[in-house]
């Protein structure tokens, strides 16, 4: 069986090591003997949702986010929203996460519109949240990452939070939650990159993708000593440094 990964705006939005998420998907899919491949989708490229088994979308600098938002204002954005509604497994980080929702309202100027696939809205905040984060997820256990955002995200009733913040600030620094869950999509602010040190999430994305293609969601186990040692070291470091 094969796994085709669609990397949305991999050239335009690729800061803070979010590429590590794609490397993790490849590594753990190939570890199971899958033929895994990545296709980068850029501004102006056509999006054919049926080509992909799993999607990834990372964070970007402001300038690039504006051109990406514009790129999604037609059929492309509608198709992506429909794919997410149809259960496409997807991970979106930071800027990608924000644009999955209603959009991003800066301090000045017009709202940067999103695709309304997730019931979330984001706006500019007064401070930048920077630091290690530990998030307790009912689904995935303790997740580790690094947040670096001044945008605040608020969840509507149609989505669930990804988890509760143990260390860090999360979506908005107020309600104690981080990220959003909707169908098979995860959106959050966790760089780090997220997937390498949280292999249970990587495996869930791969398993869900295979299940949708008629395979078994349960993957054969892979050794993950290096992953779990790195994960535990970050939990320790985050607790040591605190908020």
């Amino acid at each position: 069986m094969d796994l085709r990964i669609g990397w949305l705006y991999g050239h335009e939005m690729n800061i803070y090591g979010d590429r590590g998420n794609v490397l993790a998907l490849l590594h753990r899919a190939r570890g199971r003997g899958l033929e895994a491949a990545v296709e980068v989708l850029g501004v102006g490229d056509a999006f054919e949702p049926e080509r992909y088994d799993v999607l990834f979308w990372g964070g970007g600098q402001d300038r690039e986010q504006i051109s990406v938002s514009a790129d999604l204002m037609g059929a492309k954005g509608r198709d992506l929203k429909a794919a997410i509604g149809g259960g496409m497994p997807m991970l979106a980080i930071c800027g990608g996460y924000q644009l999955l929702g209603d959009g991003y309202r800066p301090y000045e100027g017009d709202m940067l519109p999103g695709i309304h696939a997730l019931d979330i809205t984001s706006e500019a905040g007064p401070t930048r949240f920077i630091g290690n984060v530990v998030v307790d997820s009912p689904e995935f256990g303790a997740l580790v990452g690094f947040e670096n955002h001044s945008g605040l995200t608020f969840l509507g009733p149609e989505v669930e939070p990804l988890g509760r913040v143990r260390v860090g600030h999360g979506n908005n620094g107020r309600d104690g939650f981080e990220g959003a869950r909707y169908r098979n999509t995860i959106g959050c602010y966790m760089h780090g990159a997220l997937l390498p040190k949280n292999p249970q999430v990587t495996d869930w994305l791969i398993g869900t993708a295979l299940e949708r293609k008629g395979g078994a969601a349960a993957l054969p186990p892979l050794p993950d000593d290096v992953e779990s040692t790195a994960h535990d070291a970050v939990v320790k470091r985050a607790l040591q440094l605190g908020r």
């Binding site: 090591g17 590429r19 590590g20 630091g131 780090g192 390498p196």
Partner: peptide, 9 residues
Amino acid sequence: GRDVSWLWD
């Protein structure tokens, strides 16, 4: 730099 995410870049 507090963030080591760049290792993945």
